[in-house]
Amino acid sequence: MTEHTHAGRLIVLSGPTAVGKGTVEAKLRADHPEVWVSVSATTRAARPGEVNGVNYWFLSEEEFLRKEAAGEFLETAVVHGMAHYGTPLKPVEEHLAAGIPTILEIDLQGARRVRQRASELDLEVVYVFIAPPSFEELKRRLTGRGTETPEQQARRLETAKVELAAESEFDVTIVNDTVERAADELWSVIAEEYGLQS
């Protein structure tokens, strides 16, 4: 195994569906552009407006499976039984080695897969759980988006209950009551890890 020297630990950001992980991360990046967020690879087709290397790395299934077999991903998943998704390992290691604050925003299953793989790779990770102020508020946010049918909403709420129960698996919990406060709290965690000014 190669020796890895990391100036800071990888920040893994997770939490239940509709909690606002992406919104908190976007606010953090707007305030602190020095933070690097990992770009996932996928075998699904690019949607209109999506840019290769910005939104995702778009790969053929053959290419993805070859990279997966070669151990080039930190974690992988098959979503909805169709598309493959994965976190390319090399950019994560390169940014960590350079002392650049590095974030991976991922679902609960992905966070668990990172935990399994991190020990093999001698990768130090801080697991951050973004929580809603309450389950009722999470329900309100999910139904307020208006992007899913009532059946889909019910399924996602059941998933969210399971995801909320996993909070104890994480090192830090940040309650997303306001995006600004949650992003500031996330920055405090990163600043402490990387020895930066909070």
Results as ranks from 00 to 15, higher is better:
residue 133 P to A: 07
residue 168 S to T: 12
residue 131 A to G: 09
residue 42 T to G: 08
residue 4 H to E: 12
residue 45 A to P: 02
residue 158 E to F: 06
residue 178 T to M: 07
residue 24 V to P: 03
residue 167 E to N: 07
residue 193 E to T: 05
residue 143 T to W: 12
residue 77 A to S: 15
residue 164 L to C: 03
residue 136 E to A: 15
residue 83 A to K: 06
residue 15 G to W: 02
residue 116 Q to F: 11
residue 127 Y to H: 10
residue 85 Y to Q: 09
residue 50 E to S: 05
residue 75 E to Y: 05
residue 140 R to L: 13
residue 161 K to R: 15
residue 140 R to K: 12
residue 98 A to Q: 15
residue 41 A to R: 03
residue 26 A to Q: 10
residue 54 V to E: 14
residue 94 E to A: 13
residue 99 G to P: 02
residue 141 R to C: 05
residue 95 H to R: 14
residue 119 S to D: 13
residue 166 A to G: 13
residue 197 Q to K: 10
residue 107 D to K: 09
residue 187 W to S: 00
residue 153 Q to I: 14
residue 154 A to V: 01
residue 106 I to A: 01
residue 187 W to I: 03
residue 87 T to N: 12
residue 89 L to F: 03
residue 170 F to N: 11
residue 29 R to L: 15
residue 171 D to P: 10
residue 130 I to Q: 05
residue 89 L to Y: 04
residue 122 D to N: 15
residue 178 T to N: 06
residue 198 S to L: 12
residue 68 E to Q: 15
residue 120 E to S: 14
residue 89 L to S: 05
residue 161 K to G: 08
residue 101 P to T: 07
residue 141 R to I: 00
residue 21 K to N: 08
residue 175 V to R: 13
residue 95 H to C: 08
residue 54 V to P: 06
residue 130 I to Y: 03
residue 9 R to P: 06
residue 4 H to K: 09
residue 182 A to N: 04
residue 5 T to I: 11
residue 43 T to S: 05
residue 86 G to V: 05
residue 17 T to M: 12
residue 7 A to M: 10
residue 85 Y to H: 14
residue 52 N to F: 07
residue 191 A to E: 08
residue 110 G to V: 01
residue 96 L to R: 00
residue 186 L to A: 01
residue 20 G to S: 04
residue 101 P to M: 07
residue 55 N to Y: 05
residue 144 G to C: 09
